[in-house]
Design a protein around this nucleic acid. Structure first.
Lengths: 143, 143
DNA sequence: AATTGAGGTTAGACGTAGTCTATTTCTTGG
DNA sequence: CCAAGAAATAGACTACGTCTAACCTCAATT
Protein backbone atom coordinates (compact mmCIF):
# COMPACT_ATOMS: atom_id res chain seq x y z
CA UNK A 1 0.00 0.00 0.00
CA UNK A 2 3.07 2.26 0.06
CA UNK A 3 2.62 3.37 -3.56
CA UNK A 4 -0.97 4.36 -2.93
CA UNK A 5 -1.54 7.87 -4.25
CA UNK A 6 -2.93 8.72 -0.84
CA UNK A 7 -0.50 7.13 1.53
CA UNK A 8 0.39 9.12 4.58
CA UNK A 9 3.58 10.56 3.09
CA UNK A 10 1.63 12.04 0.21
CA UNK A 11 -0.86 13.44 2.72
CA UNK A 12 1.91 15.13 4.70
CA UNK A 13 3.23 16.76 1.53
CA UNK A 14 -0.24 17.88 0.60
CA UNK A 15 -0.90 19.46 3.99
CA UNK A 16 2.41 21.35 3.76
CA UNK A 17 1.51 22.58 0.26
CA UNK A 18 -1.60 24.12 1.73
CA UNK A 19 0.28 25.71 4.62
CA UNK A 20 -1.05 23.27 7.21
CA UNK A 21 1.21 21.94 9.92
CA UNK A 22 0.88 18.14 9.61
CA UNK A 23 0.09 16.88 13.08
CA UNK A 24 -1.00 13.31 13.83
CA UNK A 25 -4.67 14.13 14.05
CA UNK A 26 -4.67 16.25 10.92
CA UNK A 27 -2.93 13.51 8.96
CA UNK A 28 -5.46 10.92 10.11
CA UNK A 29 -8.42 13.12 9.25
CA UNK A 30 -7.02 13.99 5.83
CA UNK A 31 -6.23 10.32 5.25
CA UNK A 32 -9.78 9.30 6.11
CA UNK A 33 -11.12 11.65 3.44
CA UNK A 34 -8.53 11.23 0.69
CA UNK A 35 -8.05 7.49 0.89
CA UNK A 36 -11.78 6.90 0.58
CA UNK A 37 -12.41 9.64 -1.98
CA UNK A 38 -15.93 9.82 -0.59
CA UNK A 39 -18.15 12.49 0.86
CA UNK A 40 -18.20 12.10 4.61
CA UNK A 41 -19.95 14.01 7.35
CA UNK A 42 -18.09 15.15 10.47
CA UNK A 43 -19.44 12.28 12.55
CA UNK A 44 -18.47 9.73 9.91
CA UNK A 45 -14.97 11.18 9.89
CA UNK A 46 -14.86 11.03 13.67
CA UNK A 47 -15.89 7.38 13.57
CA UNK A 48 -13.34 6.58 10.85
CA UNK A 49 -10.54 8.17 12.82
CA UNK A 50 -11.47 6.55 16.13
CA UNK A 51 -11.97 2.93 15.07
CA UNK A 52 -9.91 1.25 17.79
CA UNK A 53 -9.80 3.38 20.90
CA UNK A 54 -10.89 6.97 20.84
CA UNK A 55 -7.93 9.15 19.90
CA UNK A 56 -9.24 12.35 18.36
CA UNK A 57 -11.74 14.59 20.05
CA UNK A 58 -14.84 16.12 18.53
CA UNK A 59 -13.35 19.61 18.91
CA UNK A 60 -10.28 18.60 16.96
CA UNK A 61 -12.31 17.02 14.17
CA UNK A 62 -14.32 20.21 13.73
CA UNK A 63 -11.30 22.50 14.15
CA UNK A 64 -9.42 20.50 11.55
CA UNK A 65 -12.22 20.27 9.01
CA UNK A 66 -12.83 24.01 9.27
CA UNK A 67 -9.13 24.66 8.83
CA UNK A 68 -9.00 22.41 5.75
CA UNK A 69 -11.97 24.25 4.27
CA UNK A 70 -10.45 27.67 4.97
CA UNK A 71 -7.19 26.59 3.32
CA UNK A 72 -9.19 25.09 0.41
CA UNK A 73 -7.81 21.61 0.81
CA UNK A 74 -11.37 20.27 0.84
CA UNK A 75 -14.85 21.65 0.17
CA UNK A 76 -18.01 21.81 2.21
CA UNK A 77 -21.12 20.45 0.54
CA UNK A 78 -24.37 21.76 1.97
CA UNK A 79 -27.25 19.58 0.82
CA UNK A 80 -28.83 18.25 3.98
CA UNK A 81 -30.19 20.52 6.66
CA UNK A 82 -29.00 18.17 9.38
CA UNK A 83 -25.33 17.87 8.50
CA UNK A 84 -22.49 19.13 6.33
CA UNK A 85 -20.53 16.84 4.01
CA UNK A 86 -16.83 17.27 3.28
CA UNK A 87 -15.54 16.67 -0.22
CA UNK A 88 -11.89 15.81 -0.90
CA UNK A 89 -12.34 16.46 -4.63
CA UNK A 90 -11.36 20.06 -5.34
CA UNK A 91 -11.77 19.88 -9.12
CA UNK A 92 -14.77 21.68 -10.60
CA UNK A 93 -17.67 19.27 -10.31
CA UNK A 94 -21.22 18.95 -9.06
CA UNK A 95 -23.35 16.46 -7.15
CA UNK A 96 -26.16 14.01 -7.17
CA UNK A 97 -27.73 13.68 -3.74
CA UNK A 98 -29.67 10.49 -3.11
CA UNK A 99 -32.41 11.63 -0.76
CA UNK A 100 -33.33 8.12 0.35
CA UNK A 101 -29.81 6.96 1.17
CA UNK A 102 -28.31 10.33 2.09
CA UNK A 103 -25.36 9.70 -0.23
CA UNK A 104 -23.54 12.14 -2.50
CA UNK A 105 -21.95 11.22 -5.82
CA UNK A 106 -19.96 13.37 -8.20
CA UNK A 107 -21.00 14.82 -11.54
CA UNK A 108 -17.90 15.61 -13.56
CA UNK A 109 -17.35 19.29 -14.28
CA UNK A 110 -16.63 18.49 -17.93
CA UNK A 111 -20.10 17.05 -18.44
CA UNK A 112 -22.47 19.51 -16.83
CA UNK A 113 -22.29 23.12 -17.95
CA UNK A 114 -24.07 26.30 -16.98
CA UNK A 115 -24.99 29.01 -19.46
CA UNK A 116 -26.66 32.36 -19.04
CA UNK A 117 -25.49 33.24 -15.57
CA UNK A 118 -26.77 36.79 -15.10
CA UNK A 119 -24.61 39.74 -14.07
CA UNK A 120 -23.82 39.69 -10.39
CA UNK A 121 -25.22 42.34 -8.11
CA UNK A 122 -22.97 45.42 -8.04
CA UNK A 123 -19.66 44.97 -6.22
CA UNK A 124 -20.05 41.23 -5.67
CA UNK A 125 -17.75 38.40 -6.70
CA UNK A 126 -18.37 34.66 -7.03
CA UNK A 127 -17.10 32.43 -4.28
CA UNK A 128 -18.43 29.15 -5.69
CA UNK A 129 -21.18 27.63 -7.80
CA UNK A 130 -22.89 24.49 -6.58
CA UNK A 131 -25.28 22.37 -8.59
CA UNK A 132 -27.18 19.75 -6.64
CA UNK A 133 -29.40 17.25 -8.39
CA UNK A 134 -31.62 15.64 -5.79
CA UNK A 135 -32.65 12.14 -6.79
CA UNK A 136 -34.66 9.30 -5.29
CA UNK A 137 -35.35 5.65 -6.14
CA UNK A 138 -38.39 5.40 -8.45
CA UNK A 139 -40.10 2.75 -6.33
CA UNK A 140 -39.59 4.86 -3.24
CA UNK A 141 -42.85 5.51 -1.40
CA UNK A 142 -43.04 9.09 -0.24
CA UNK A 143 -44.22 9.42 3.32
CA UNK B 1 -54.91 46.29 0.18
CA UNK B 2 -57.88 44.06 -0.67
CA UNK B 3 -56.96 43.72 -4.36
CA UNK B 4 -53.43 42.65 -3.50
CA UNK B 5 -52.55 39.50 -5.39
CA UNK B 6 -51.67 38.02 -2.04
CA UNK B 7 -54.48 39.15 0.17
CA UNK B 8 -55.77 36.65 2.64
CA UNK B 9 -58.66 35.50 0.45
CA UNK B 10 -56.27 34.57 -2.30
CA UNK B 11 -54.15 32.74 0.26
CA UNK B 12 -57.14 30.71 1.44
CA UNK B 13 -57.91 29.68 -2.14
CA UNK B 14 -54.32 28.75 -2.72
CA UNK B 15 -54.15 26.58 0.39
CA UNK B 16 -57.34 24.76 -0.68
CA UNK B 17 -55.87 24.21 -4.17
CA UNK B 18 -52.98 22.40 -2.56
CA UNK B 19 -55.25 20.33 -0.32
CA UNK B 20 -54.40 22.24 2.84
CA UNK B 21 -57.11 23.05 5.36
CA UNK B 22 -56.82 26.84 5.82
CA UNK B 23 -56.64 27.45 9.54
CA UNK B 24 -55.76 30.81 11.07
CA UNK B 25 -52.14 29.95 11.72
CA UNK B 26 -51.60 28.45 8.29
CA UNK B 27 -53.07 31.52 6.64
CA UNK B 28 -50.82 33.83 8.61
CA UNK B 29 -47.71 31.81 7.84
CA UNK B 30 -48.55 31.61 4.14
CA UNK B 31 -49.33 35.31 4.11
CA UNK B 32 -45.98 36.14 5.70
CA UNK B 33 -44.19 34.32 2.89
CA UNK B 34 -46.32 35.25 -0.10
CA UNK B 35 -46.91 38.90 0.67
CA UNK B 36 -43.18 39.50 1.11
CA UNK B 37 -42.09 37.27 -1.77
CA UNK B 38 -38.84 36.83 0.08
CA UNK B 39 -36.79 33.94 1.34
CA UNK B 40 -37.35 33.64 5.06
CA UNK B 41 -36.01 31.24 7.65
CA UNK B 42 -38.28 29.55 10.17
CA UNK B 43 -37.36 31.97 12.93
CA UNK B 44 -37.95 34.98 10.68
CA UNK B 45 -41.38 33.59 9.85
CA UNK B 46 -42.09 33.03 13.50
CA UNK B 47 -41.12 36.64 14.24
CA UNK B 48 -43.24 37.94 11.35
CA UNK B 49 -46.29 36.03 12.54
CA UNK B 50 -45.91 37.00 16.18
CA UNK B 51 -45.32 40.75 15.88
CA UNK B 52 -47.81 41.90 18.49
CA UNK B 53 -48.32 39.25 21.12
CA UNK B 54 -47.18 35.70 20.60
CA UNK B 55 -49.89 33.79 18.79
CA UNK B 56 -48.32 30.91 16.95
CA UNK B 57 -46.05 28.37 18.57
CA UNK B 58 -42.73 27.14 17.30
CA UNK B 59 -44.15 23.66 16.80
CA UNK B 60 -46.92 25.01 14.61
CA UNK B 61 -44.54 27.07 12.51
CA UNK B 62 -42.41 24.02 11.81
CA UNK B 63 -45.38 21.70 11.31
CA UNK B 64 -46.90 24.14 8.87
CA UNK B 65 -43.75 24.83 6.89
CA UNK B 66 -43.07 21.12 6.54
CA UNK B 67 -46.65 20.57 5.42
CA UNK B 68 -46.35 23.34 2.81
CA UNK B 69 -43.14 21.81 1.52
CA UNK B 70 -44.66 18.33 1.33
CA UNK B 71 -47.64 19.69 -0.60
CA UNK B 72 -45.26 21.70 -2.82
CA UNK B 73 -46.78 25.05 -2.02
CA UNK B 74 -43.30 26.35 -1.17
CA UNK B 75 -39.73 25.10 -1.53
CA UNK B 76 -36.93 24.55 0.95
CA UNK B 77 -33.62 26.16 0.06
CA UNK B 78 -30.64 24.58 1.73
CA UNK B 79 -27.65 26.90 1.46
CA UNK B 80 -26.61 27.62 5.01
CA UNK B 81 -25.66 24.88 7.44
CA UNK B 82 -27.26 26.77 10.29
CA UNK B 83 -30.77 27.24 8.92
CA UNK B 84 -33.21 26.41 6.14
CA UNK B 85 -34.84 29.08 3.98
CA UNK B 86 -38.37 28.81 2.61
CA UNK B 87 -39.11 30.06 -0.87
CA UNK B 88 -42.62 31.05 -1.96
CA UNK B 89 -41.57 31.10 -5.62
CA UNK B 90 -42.34 27.70 -7.13
CA UNK B 91 -41.34 28.57 -10.69
CA UNK B 92 -38.12 27.05 -11.99
CA UNK B 93 -35.36 29.33 -10.79
CA UNK B 94 -32.06 29.39 -8.97
CA UNK B 95 -30.30 31.45 -6.33
CA UNK B 96 -27.56 33.84 -5.46
CA UNK B 97 -26.54 33.51 -1.84
CA UNK B 98 -24.79 36.51 -0.34
CA UNK B 99 -22.42 34.92 2.17
CA UNK B 100 -21.75 38.16 4.02
CA UNK B 101 -25.37 39.19 4.48
CA UNK B 102 -26.96 35.74 4.53
CA UNK B 103 -29.51 36.81 1.93
CA UNK B 104 -30.91 34.85 -1.00
CA UNK B 105 -31.96 36.39 -4.31
CA UNK B 106 -33.52 34.74 -7.33
CA UNK B 107 -31.95 33.91 -10.66
CA UNK B 108 -34.66 33.53 -13.24
CA UNK B 109 -35.06 30.05 -14.70
CA UNK B 110 -35.20 31.51 -18.20
CA UNK B 111 -31.71 32.97 -17.90
CA UNK B 112 -29.59 30.25 -16.41
CA UNK B 113 -29.54 26.91 -18.20
CA UNK B 114 -27.91 23.57 -17.54
CA UNK B 115 -26.56 21.35 -20.29
CA UNK B 116 -24.94 17.94 -20.24
CA UNK B 117 -26.64 16.47 -17.21
CA UNK B 118 -25.37 12.87 -17.18
CA UNK B 119 -27.62 9.82 -17.05
CA UNK B 120 -28.99 9.21 -13.60
CA UNK B 121 -27.94 6.16 -11.64
CA UNK B 122 -30.13 3.14 -12.49
CA UNK B 123 -33.68 3.31 -11.16
CA UNK B 124 -33.43 6.88 -9.91
CA UNK B 125 -35.58 9.89 -10.74
CA UNK B 126 -34.98 13.61 -10.29
CA UNK B 127 -36.70 15.34 -7.43
CA UNK B 128 -35.20 18.80 -8.00
CA UNK B 129 -32.18 20.64 -9.32
CA UNK B 130 -30.72 23.48 -7.31
CA UNK B 131 -28.08 25.89 -8.49
CA UNK B 132 -26.56 28.08 -5.82
CA UNK B 133 -24.11 30.83 -6.72
CA UNK B 134 -22.36 31.91 -3.56
CA UNK B 135 -21.24 35.52 -3.73
CA UNK B 136 -19.52 38.01 -1.46
CA UNK B 137 -18.77 41.74 -1.51
CA UNK B 138 -15.41 42.34 -3.21
CA UNK B 139 -14.11 44.55 -0.43
CA UNK B 140 -15.04 41.90 2.13
CA UNK B 141 -12.07 40.93 4.30
CA UNK B 142 -11.98 37.17 4.76
CA UNK B 143 -11.30 36.12 8.33
C1' DA C 1 19.34 19.42 30.04
C1' DA C 2 15.99 23.03 31.55
C1' DT C 3 13.02 26.93 30.07
C1' DT C 4 9.84 29.04 27.32
C1' DG C 5 6.00 29.93 24.52
C1' DA C 6 3.19 29.33 20.53
C1' DG C 7 0.46 26.19 18.32
C1' DG C 8 -2.39 22.14 18.87
C1' DT C 9 -5.58 19.05 21.40
C1' DT C 10 -8.91 18.06 24.82
C1' DA C 11 -13.35 17.34 27.78
C1' DG C 12 -17.23 18.95 28.53
C1' DA C 13 -20.37 22.88 28.86
C1' DC C 14 -23.00 25.47 25.87
C1' DG C 15 -26.04 27.39 21.92
C1' DT C 16 -29.55 26.53 18.94
C1' DA C 17 -32.42 24.71 14.89
C1' DG C 18 -35.58 21.56 14.62
C1' DT C 19 -38.44 17.33 16.50
C1' DC C 20 -41.42 14.91 19.58
C1' DT C 21 -45.04 14.00 22.99
C1' DA C 22 -48.92 14.50 25.64
C1' DT C 23 -52.52 17.57 26.23
C1' DT C 24 -55.77 21.08 24.93
C1' DT C 25 -58.32 23.54 21.56
C1' DC C 26 -60.47 24.18 17.19
C1' DT C 27 -63.16 22.90 13.15
C1' DT C 28 -66.54 20.81 10.76
C1' DG C 29 -70.07 17.43 9.31
C1' DG C 30 -74.20 15.88 10.82
C1' DC D 1 -75.17 22.22 19.02
C1' DC D 2 -72.39 18.03 19.61
C1' DA D 3 -69.05 14.61 18.77
C1' DA D 4 -64.86 13.21 16.60
C1' DG D 5 -61.07 13.98 14.09
C1' DA D 6 -57.68 17.60 12.92
C1' DA D 7 -54.74 21.12 14.43
C1' DA D 8 -52.20 23.82 17.88
C1' DT D 9 -49.63 24.14 22.05
C1' DA D 10 -45.79 24.16 25.80
C1' DG D 11 -41.99 22.52 26.82
C1' DA D 12 -38.87 18.58 27.04
C1' DC D 13 -35.68 16.65 24.10
C1' DT D 14 -32.06 15.62 20.33
C1' DA D 15 -28.13 16.45 17.67
C1' DC D 16 -24.82 19.23 15.13
C1' DG D 17 -21.64 22.33 15.86
C1' DT D 18 -19.07 26.00 18.82
C1' DC D 19 -16.69 27.72 22.75
C1' DT D 20 -13.74 27.88 26.80
C1' DA D 21 -10.14 27.09 29.64
C1' DA D 22 -6.83 23.78 30.82
C1' DC D 23 -3.36 20.88 29.23
C1' DC D 24 0.18 18.90 26.05
C1' DT D 25 3.94 19.00 22.52
C1' DC D 26 7.86 20.39 20.53
C1' DA D 27 11.22 23.36 18.63
C1' DA D 28 14.13 27.21 19.66
C1' DT D 29 17.05 29.28 23.04
C1' DT D 30 20.14 29.39 26.59
Amino acid sequence: MENDLYNRNAIVDRLREFGINPTHQRIEIAYALFSRQEHLSADQIMAAVNTKHSETSKATVYNTLNLFVKRKLIREVIVDPSKVFYDPNTHVHHHFYDLAAGVLTDIDGDELHLTGLPKLPEGMAIESIDVIVRIYPKQHLNS
